[in-house]
Amino acid sequence: MTWSTREIADLAGTTVNAIRHYHALGLLDEPPRSYNGYKQYGVRDLVSLLRLRRLAGLGLPLAQIGTTNESDTTESLRRADTVLREEIERFRRSRAGIAALLRAGAPVDTPSGFEEVGARLTASDRALIHVCTRIHPPAALSRLQLMVCAESAEVRDQFHALTPGASESTRDHLAEDLAQGGAHWRSTVWLEPTESGAHAPYPLRVTEQAFVETLAALYNDAQRDVLRRADVALRAQRRTAGSWRAGPGVSPVRSHALVASPRP
């Protein structure tokens, strides 16, 4: 008994295009043809096709199936198992991230770990946190999460409502409010030197440059001016008190002011 390409594809639970692909790769021999030019597949072809489907279904790359012996195939299975295990873990993390976003009602671009406050953050703040997750070490990110969660909603709203024409008194008062907790998260002033050392993903110079350029791109002149003033206030606190007043979950902070001064 023989089958056409369509018939053997149906029997094997695959498609005509898949069979043609197997032929092109040399994984399935071309069968004889009938007098009218149609392929005629037999039982051996069906068994070969089912074997290919089985190996492909286990995750073996098609390019390896036809060029490996039994021992090589066993090793390929082990490698495929490792790949699948990593994929399963990636899917698990993805599902957990999706669940956290849905549970908190946070925007889809909320950085991982900040889902609970994502709905309260502006697009600019989310973008800054994304950059921070790349340039700061894990210990600093844990502190950053605490600081973002502890930020006053009133202060945050006032900061984002700032326009370039904001008055001097408005800027001063808001800078004082930002510095009141001992540090503000839109600066790396709070980052300890030990946290920007061996475990940091990039050298300090690269981290600072990336942070400053991100602030310049995300916030207007008045907002950057307020951040600069807050940093000045924090340095003054250090000079007068000898140590930083720590906010929620915040240790003594650095004396770097990474906020660019406003344009004239």
Rank of each mutant, 00 (worst) to 15 (best):
T110R: 04
E213I: 08
I19P: 00
Y219C: 05
D177E: 13
T68K: 06
A175V: 06
P111Y: 10
Y219A: 03
A80Y: 05
T122Y: 07
R263K: 08
Y22V: 02
W3Y: 15
L146F: 04
H130D: 03
D177H: 14
Y38P: 02
G66N: 11
P248A: 15
R134C: 04
D45S: 15
G26I: 11
Q158Y: 01
Y41G: 05
S71N: 07
A175R: 01
L191E: 02
P61M: 05
Y202H: 15
D72E: 15
A119L: 08
H173I: 02
D81R: 06
R245V: 15
P262Y: 00
R20F: 13
R239P: 01
A210C: 07
G182A: 10
A96K: 12
H199A: 12
A119H: 12
A63F: 08
P137D: 06
P61S: 08
A56G: 12
L121G: 01
N36T: 11
D109E: 14
R90I: 07
L227Y: 05
A166E: 05
R126T: 00
E75Q: 11
R78C: 05
Y202A: 09
T188Y: 01
A140P: 02
S71D: 13
E151H: 06
A99M: 08
A80I: 07
L141C: 08
Q64K: 15
T214L: 10
E87K: 09
E7F: 06
Y38N: 10
D231R: 04
L144F: 05
A183E: 07
L52Y: 02
L77Q: 10
G105A: 04
A139T: 02
D72L: 13
V117Y: 01
L11D: 01
R228T: 11
A246E: 13
V259W: 02
T2I: 13
V155H: 12
L25N: 05
G57M: 03
S243G: 05
M147Y: 12
A175Y: 01
N17P: 01
P262M: 06
I135C: 00
V226E: 05
L174H: 01
D81M: 09
L52V: 06
H136I: 03
S169D: 07
V212A: 10
L25E: 11
T82D: 10
L28E: 00
R228Y: 14
L234Q: 04
D221S: 08
S124D: 13
L84I: 08
E195L: 08
H199D: 11
L77D: 03
A217D: 09
R51T: 03
P32G: 14
G97Y: 01
T122N: 07
L46M: 05
T73V: 14
P248M: 11
L128A: 04
G182N: 02
G118E: 03
G197P: 00
S187D: 06
T214A: 14
V206T: 15
P137A: 14
G242P: 03
L46Y: 10
A96E: 13
A127Y: 02
V232I: 15
G247H: 08
D125W: 00
S71K: 02
Q209P: 00
D231A: 15
Q209M: 04
H173D: 08
Y38K: 10
L102A: 13
H136G: 00
